[in-house]
Design a protein around this nucleic acid. Structure first.
Lengths: 170, 170
DNA sequence: CAGCATACGTCAGTGTTGTTGACATTCCAA
DNA sequence: TTGGAATGTCAACAACACTGACGTATGCTG
């Protein structure tokens, strides 16, 4: 195991963790881990007519009930046409409800139906189980570092979205 | 569940880092960060006729020159038909060379050409730059935690692939 | 040697998810 | 009130994954 505890709060001196080799390992870890990250929900969804995009939409509608299509668009970072296809399917299947805005009739506010909540629960249970196992194995300090690095890897825009959601949560 | 593995350290008392809320934040961090992670290479590739799949192939051929198609298949976790499409394009464009195996003539060993190396360099420079910036901002301890959690999030098979590559590197 | 397994390539078809382009509706401000 | 911006929808297409079936060359084993 490289590094260990060099414990310099100011990481000025020892920059060995910034070698190309270390960066490459970080890149590959990210690649492999993301596969694990999505594996369980993907498996569940493959039986239904849904995919990862549906999962993402359901996740964030659940997180911010009543959100508009435009807001969801910004969070998901896809085109509105792409999101629309997914949303249309979810609405037709009765997992998501779309309500015309009261103050601005151009907007559609999105909500999960009871059935939508059920699927969301199933998916996030699976995903959380893996995350919980990883967190438990790694321990609280590793988890803190994990979050710190991930946050630093986001675009500024995504950082804002992430922080906003984080604060909404508690 | 492989839950019986609580050998690692006794972070026993305070389990607040395992609440659903913390797990959800981890999930969302992973989602947003992965977007940042792929953003720079994606931007570069979008100008050419290549995509993320080509990037992955190039990356791992560079990492393990002479690797066989089958080995690459296992690492990338896609079907041979899917990989073949990508590989065919890269070979036709002269970025990758495929050599018949000497000891086992059924195998094809893959190498980057000079031009292939050039593209690999461009892509990984971009990706490393972001990773370096994130690592530097977060500091060595956070980076260690980051890697620990990611590794714990992988499937067993991916963990082996990751470890093997890691050892090959140094 | 014969027969089976392995490694690789390919053709055809399908599904999900992303893209651009065109268009309707609604809001707002000049 | 009218023109432009914002919001969302429909249609067509591209990238990349998947399955299934098949063909060829090669290796291994009884």
């Amino acid at each position: 195991m490289p590094g260990g505890r060099s414990t310099s709060a100011h990481h000025g001196e020892n920059l060995l963790f910034l070698t190309d080799e270390q960066l490459r390992q970080g890149i590959e870890a990210m690649f492999f881990a993301y596969r694990g990250f999505t594996a369980d929900p993907d498996r569940i969804l493959s039986d239904m007519a849904y995919g990862r995009a549906h999962h993402r939409a359901i996740h964030f509608i659940n997180r911010a009930p009543g959100t508009t299509v435009n807001n969801l668009l910004n969070i998901l970072g896809v085109t509105k046409q792409s999101l629309n296809r997914v949303l249309r399917a979810l609405i037709e299947q009765g997992l998501v409800e779309s309500k015309v805005g009261k103050v601005d009739k151009r907007e559609r506010h999105l909500f999960l139906t009871d059935e939508g909540h059920k699927l969301e629960q199933t998916l996030s249970d699976a995903q959380r189980a893996r995350m919980r196992s990883a967190f438990r194995d790694a321990g609280p300090e590793a988890v803190a570092g994990f979050r710190t690095v991930l946050e630093a890897m986001m675009d500024a825009k995504m950082q804002r979205a992430y922080t906003r959601l984080k604060e909404t949560g508690s």
